[in-house]
Nucleic acid binder design. Structure first.
Length: 270
DNA sequence: ATAATAACCTGAGGGC
DNA sequence: TGCCCTCAGGTTATTA
């Protein structure tokens, strides 16, 4: 469910409630997420939260002795509750904060994870080989063109490859290619420098707009305050099969690539 | 090495 | 009401 804008919306929502506060204790009702929640997290007591960062779709909670690395998977949400409330079936983790508030992690499908590391998160196995952040200058037209050389992969699944660029999931890959006017059926190696530039500009713009709107809520994404994101109504092609293209009026089409749905306009995207 | 696929898990919705 | 099928915002592990 969450792509970069939703994770960043979550980070911005929880950061003011966590930084400078102490985690008094942790309640774990379900340890079996993508990987088991390590004992180091379950045992945390009276730990100051120094900062709340993000790398790709990972949230990084910095404590004096290490970092909690959180991923929301497909269905994860984090909310800050004003007090401890009865837990539902999929409310797997609570952080009890010195403010009296409770940070609650909910994840029905359990594709997310909570991991612990005492080394810099950037060196963690899961983060060490990630591509550039899309909203930094490291993600440039020159970089993307270089990456695309010799790559026979379809451009849409290629954009979703975390080694190419992080944070772009199934919604924003389709949206970015629509904005760039590039067909999702193109092979990465066929892209010209100018087309790579269009893709880079479009990815940045789409992600920035989505963040401004608090992310995209299709069915269950909620911010830390429990509010949905408002970007869904601004999506141009995702989940709009059959609707008229907002540029040319031809119907939006859908196809399957790498087992994921792709939405596009065959007239506007070449 | 690269590229395609199978797998993890639960819930919602549609057809019968 | 129930059963079976498909689909869902992600990523790793396995197979070609």
């Amino acid at each position: 469910m969450p792509e970069l804008p939703e994770v960043e919306t979550t980070r911005r929502g929880i950061e003011p409630h966590l930084s400078g506060q102490h985690i008094l204790s942790v309640s774990v009702r379900q340890t079996q997420l993508r990987w088991p929640i390590p004992a180091e997290i379950i045992r945390l007591k009276n730990q100051l939260v120094i900062s709340v960062g993000r790398r790709a779709k990972y949230l990084l909670v910095e404590l004096p002795k290490g970092w909690i690395i959180i991923h929301l998977g497909m269905s994860g949400t984090i909310r800050v509750l004003p007090e401890k409330l009865p837990a539902g079936k999929h409310d797997h983790v609570d952080l009890h904060l010195s403010s009296g508030k409770v940070l609650r992690y909910t994840d029905p499908r359990r594709f997310g994870c909570w991991l612990w590391t005492i080394n810099a998160p950037a060196n963690h196995k899961l983060l060490a080989n990630l591509g550039p952040e899309p909203l930094t200058t490291n993600f440039s037209a020159e970089y993307l063109f270089r990456q695309s050389r010799g790559k026979n992969t379809l451009v849409k699944p290629w954009l979703m490859d975390n080694k190419v660029v992080v944070g772009v999931g199934n919604i924003y890959a389709s949206e970015s290619l629509f904005r760039a006017g590039i067909s999702p059926k193109r092979r990465a190696k066929s892209l010209t420098p100018d087309e790579c530039k269009k893709i880079v500009i479009s990815v940045k713009k789409v992600l920035e707009l989505a963040i401004k709107n608090g992310g995209t809520t299709i069915s269950d994404f909620l911010s830390a305050e429990g509010k949905p994101g408002y970007f869904a109504q601004k999506l141009k092609v995702y989940d709009r099969v059959g609707e008229p293209c907002q540029k040319c009026g031809n119907p939006v089409q859908k196809l399957t690539q790498a087992q994921r749905s792709t939405f596009f306009c065959a007239h506007c995207q070449r």
